[in-house]
Design a protein around this nucleic acid. Structure first.
Length: 536
RNA sequence: GGGCCGUUAGCUCAGUCGGUAGAGCACCUGCCUUUUAAGCAGGGAGUCGCUGGUUCGAGCCCAGCACGGCCUACCA
């Protein structure tokens, strides 16, 4: 046990147990440990010396012993690191106060350096014993990488040119008790990056950039719509009847109402009620929940932008989509071109518009569209599993078309493309085209083979809507959990008259993926859904 | 649901033929007052994911399980 300045005794784990002089420190140490848990006490003391996290805790105890509060309440800083660096010409020689996490420490005898990282930058601290005094230098020597500190001192440039703060006063703001991931390689393990996103954010600059971009994207979407006169709305997430998409819902229960409720799978039916209510242009950015499989583009909870515009149709929605994507690309990439996973993308308008039936005809032949039987034969010839092989029923014509789109068309839509005019059968909320009652005015957005959005000219004929939902209810009775239910209140709203309206839904997470060159949806969701770690 | 791969120190990773655990970072000690992946010298640190099995002996071979990744299928 060594004695430091002012008779400070330093606690070392393990080693202290064997040291007679150190035994005096044990009561303090045990009190702290007992506060954690009874069982912890034994294991903590039995641990061999030298484990980094034990040493960090020992350093905490040593700091307390010399009267340092390791977790003080607040700290006034005068500058962020980036401000000192960017404004150095003006600030050189003047006093600044900065704060942040120490991401590296380089001891140098009776001096030392540290990299102090704050929200969007880094500045070097230079601590000299003859500047801060013996007492504070003793504190400095008990600090570890990962600790959060504040420092007041003069802005200067070192011999090698690094903008630094020559510290006059050093303040511990939060003692870290666990070591950070490796400083050079960062946190690599994907599971840990998702489960302990805070460590991912501390150690990986690219991760911070992705979520900064995400924030900007959402902000740009909001400003874009507000600028066009849209009202931002918040509609129910807990819904007694879910609709607006094909998906299984999460169920929950309201105790005092004794009511089964569902987490919404879409915002659609409530936003349309607002169009009935006269708001004319509404949007919502919020979470939807779908109780289905997870993969690179599907998360059980995801963020959707939905917007509805009275007196517009799906053509207007296509133009709106093009404008929004052009704006986003310009803001994030400085132009309309960017790459996603090695693929060149250019979102410059106008985008390709391809009719669904034309796209299907192109992959299975014109003849195959003459009858359902011909389409089945063509699909099977193309090697598609139509689901009947395991004793299931063959899908209807619309379902077949959808299957062919999924398997043979959509993956090849790399350049931005609107797939337009869908079969009515698979689009219960969209209005028919003027010239074909089996086709609706609907489009989906594809970029890089990923479906980014869905839009239609909204069905506003209440009687037709009742017939469409009636067909859905039948499917549901037949065991299709993803079919719509009848929403009487929504129908009643339509009976009061909804103006002709265009609607558009955009998967925000997928847009973020695309614009940040992220390979999967989990990479753009801060805390993606994970199975809990097994605790033993 | 199926296939393949992964799981070793807090982190990033080695680990040969089955022979009793390694490096770097981090942590500690000593030296070092302009370093910056600081340096030099020394030190400590492990439930080899879990449970069984085979074996004189298992990080390594076998089986099952858990978690994760990629692909695939299903669902729309």
């Amino acid at each position: 046990m060594e004695t430091r300045e002012k008779g400070v005794q330093i606690v070392r784990p393990g080693r202290a147990v064997r040291n007679v002089a150190a035994m005096r420190l044990q009561p303090d140490r045990q009190r702290t440990i007992a506060g954690l848990s009874a069982s912890r006490e034994a294991s903590e003391l039995e641990k061999p010396e030298g484990v980094a996290q034990d040493q960090m805790r020992a350093n905490l105890e040593s700091l307390r012993k010399i009267g340092i509060d390791p977790y003080p309440h607040r700290f006034e800083r005068s500058h962020r690191s980036s401000e000192v660096v960017d404004d150095f010409d003006r600030l050189e020689g003047s006093e600044v106060t900065v704060a942040g996490r120490m991401m590296a420490m380089r001891g140098h005898g009776k001096a030392g350096f540290a990299d102090l990282v704050d929200v969007e930058g880094k500045i070097q601290l230079y601590v000299r014993r003859d500047e801060v005094g013996d007492e504070q230098f003793a504190v400095w020597e008990l600090l570890n990488v990962g600790d959060i500190v504040g420092a007041r001192g003069e802005a200067f440039r070192t011999r090698s040119g690094e903008v630094s703060v020559k510290v006059k006063e050093l303040t511990l703001l939060s003692k870290a008790l666990l070591p950070l991931p490796e400083k050079w390689h960062g946190l690599k393990d994907k599971e840990l990056r998702y489960r302990r996103r805070y460590l991912d954010l501390i150690s990986n600059e690219e991760t911070r950039d992705v979520f900064r971009s995400r924030s900007r994207i959402v902000h740009i979407m909001r400003e874009f719509l507000v600028g066009r006169g849209f009202l931002e709305a918040e509609t129910p997430i807990l819904q007694p009847i879910y609709g607006g998409a094909f998906a299984r819902a999460f169920e929950t229960h309201h105790h005092s109402l004794d009511l089964k409720l569902y987490l919404r799978i879409a915002d659609e039916l409530y936003l349309k009620r607002l169009i009935v209510g006269g708001f004319e242009r509404v949007f919502e950015i919020g979470k939807d929940f779908r109780n289905e499989g997870m993969d690179r583009t599907h998360s059980p909870e995801f963020t959707q932008l939905e917007l509805y515009q009275a007196y517009a149709d799906y053509n207007v929605m296509m133009e709106t989509t093009e404008s929004l994507f052009e704006l986003l690309a310009r803001e994030l990439h400085g132009g309309t071109k960017f790459t996603w996973q090695g693929q060149e993308i250019d979102v410059k308008a106008p985008w390709k518009r391809v009719r669904v039936m034309d796209a299907v005809a192109e992959v299975v032949g014109e003849e195959a569209l003459k009858s359902k039987e011909a389409l089945v034969a063509a699909a099977q010839a193309a090697g598609l599993d139509l689901g009947d092989s395991q004793g299931g029923e063959l899908p209807g014509f619309g379902g077949l078309v959808e299957k062919i789109l999924d398997e043979l068309v959509e993956p090849n839509l790399i350049e931005p493309t609107f797939l337009i005019d869908y079969p009515l059968e698979i689009s219960p909320l969209a209005k028919q085209t003027a010239d074909d009652p089996d086709i609706v005015e609907r489009f989906e957005i594809f970029i890089a083979g990923i479906e980014l959005g869905n839009s239609f000219t909204e069905l506003n004929d209440p009687d037709e809507q009742v017939r469409r939902l009636g067909a859905q209810v039948e499917k549901r009775a037949g065991g299709d959990e993803e079919a719509h239910g009848m929403d009487d209140d929504f129908i009643m709203a339509l009976r009061h008259g909804m103006p002709p309206t265009g609607g558009l839904g955009i998967g925000v997470d997928r847009v973020v993926m695309l614009l940040t060159d992220s390979p999967g949806i989990r990479d753009v969701i801060l805390f993606p859904a994970m199975r809990p770690e097994r605790s033993e």
